[in-house]
Structures are given as C-alpha cells and as structure tokens.
Amino acid sequence: MSNPPLLEVKNLYMHYHISDQEIVKAVSDVSFSVYEGETFGFVGESGCGKSATCRSLLRLIKPPGEILSGEILYKGQDILKLSPRAMQQFRGRQMSMIFQEPMTALNPVMKIRDQITDALYFLKNRKTEANEYAVDLLRRVGIPLPEERIKEYPHQFSGGMQQRAMIASALGPKPGLLLADEPTTALDVTIQDQIIKLINNLRDELKMSVILVTHDLGVVAQMCDRLAVMYAGRIMEMTDTVTLFSKPRHPYTYALLGSIPTRANRGKKLEPITGAPPNLANLDPGCPFKPRCRYAESVCGEELPEIRELKPGHWSRCHFLDKAESFQGVIEDYQQ
C-alpha cells in the first residue's frame, strides 16, 4: 500500500436541502481511500448514507441534493472541479456504477445490445466491432448464448441475468473503478453467490478496483479487502476486513456483529440493535449512535467524537477508545 491510492476522498459533505427548516445531512465528513485492485466496502443499515456517498462519487446527485464541500481525488485529480462535459467523459471510462434493482436500472424499451454499445466511445465501427465486443462482454459475465440474448429486451431476462447484463453494460467503457450499490440485495441467495464470485473474478481479470455498498455483512466478508462502517452519514469505523470481524473497536460495529450469526457468537442468542437510526434531518449535537449505544455516557450526548487512527489503518469514531481495556472485555464477552 505504498503506492498512492487510486481514489482518495477527503471530508466529503452532501446534504439534501429540502427547505430551510429541513436539511437532510446524508453524508458528513467522509474520508477514505481505495487502492488499485482492492475491494472497499461500505456497510450500515439502510438510510445511513452509503448509497448517497456512492452517488456523490459520480456526481449523480440531483437537487435538492448538493455536494457542499470536500475533495474526490481520482488519480490525483479532483473530480468535483471537472466541468459538466469533462465529468460526462469521466463517467464510465474511469468510474462506473451498478445499481441495486437491475429491472429498474435497464431501459425497458432498448435492446440489451444497444444498452451496452451506446457507451463504447472508443470503437469507431459501431455496427460490427461494437456487436462483437458486446457479445464478448456478455460471455464474460456468464450469459449463455450471448449472440442470441443480445437481441432481447431487459424484461426477457431473469433477475440474475439482468444483473449480469447491467454489469456488462457498466464495464463496457473499461472503468478503473466500479461502484457496486447493493448488487446482490434484489437477488435470490443462490444467484447472490454467483454474482459475488463474478464481480470478484472480473476485478482480478480486468485489474480494477471495486467499491461495494451493502447492508449484508456476509457479502462484505466474501468480497472486501477493507471496509468502512457507516452510521447517520458518517464513517464510524474503518479498517481491513479481518480486523473488523475479529477486533472491532466501535460499539456500533459490535452491535452489528452481534445481530448476525458469526462463528464468534455461535450458540449464543442473537441480539438485534434496539431502536432505529436517527432522522438525518434532525441530528443532535452529540454522537449519533448515542441513543442506541450500551456504553454511552453523558459526554456522548454533548460532543461529536472525532475519527481517530488507533493503529495504522484502523480508524474509529468514539469517545472511549482510550478506555480500550474495558471495551475489550465487553468485546470478548461478545465473542465467547
């Protein structure tokens, strides 16, 4: 990791300005880096700002949403400073995105072929060359009989096949970074597995990086090298996948891990996180997780903790990181 990162995001803020009384703070103070060839994950409950972060990276935010401040450096260049025209050329060729619902992300009235070839800016001869290229892409993403299926419309595909077609379409312009927004959520479990493997393989084959957004810790474990846990629009904890699952250092992460079956809590009762995530339009000054946190003390309601680096590469946002000893006990208690 001595190489400079492929993507570096610094202090990104994105708010929905619905009215002067109602400002939804979807993304606040988000900083992270993605290196070449790795998969970086965002996990959290729905509505915690993972997808909003993802869309901000491609500047696909529509009013009343607005990126207020921050830097998004791709290969050292701040894409927030690109002109609309330059941004249009940046999308797809450098960074591309796949969506949660393949059915709604594909144009219902265009053939699959046209939805792949229309982004192939680098091909001169659109007719034959583009067709061959598209067939090849479909074969790569595992669609049988690609020469035939390419002439069909999205509704003639099954959910899993639609997801594959969407991946093919997104990879058409050869991006260096693929954003995957809940790519498996809408699919059956068996197909989820296939799609996960497919994305992993394509990442290695095409030597690209992937940012994965999901609420599913199982998917994270299968795909990510490093990840960030998000809550109420902020990153709460960020580290490599192994550390996160074995030595989490944030109460929210413990709670998340405690709510799903893992090897660590085998035989124990699963504990759902009580309460609901806060309303992003109406955040209290303190730590957003305070109302649901088991270890909260009075300072948590008054002051928002800074995100701090505990060990190289392991970041966490909590007032009591220094009391690590007492926490550790709790964690181990959890894990036994």
């Binding site: 050329q89 999308r91 797809g92 995105m97 949660q100 997104a170 312009p173």
Partner: peptide, 19 residues
C-alpha cells in the same frame, strides 16, 4: 435508476435525453 445508470456510463447528455 435507468437514467442515472445511463449517465453513470458516461453517455452524452443528448443521448440520455433522447434514448
């Protein structure tokens, strides 16, 4: 989503609006 997806592939604004 399909409009966002089209934009995310880097299609020209004209193409997105038309097709």
């Amino acid at each position: 989503d399909y409009v966002d997806f089209a934009r995310s592939k880097g299609l020209m604004d004209k193409t997105v609006k038309k097709n």
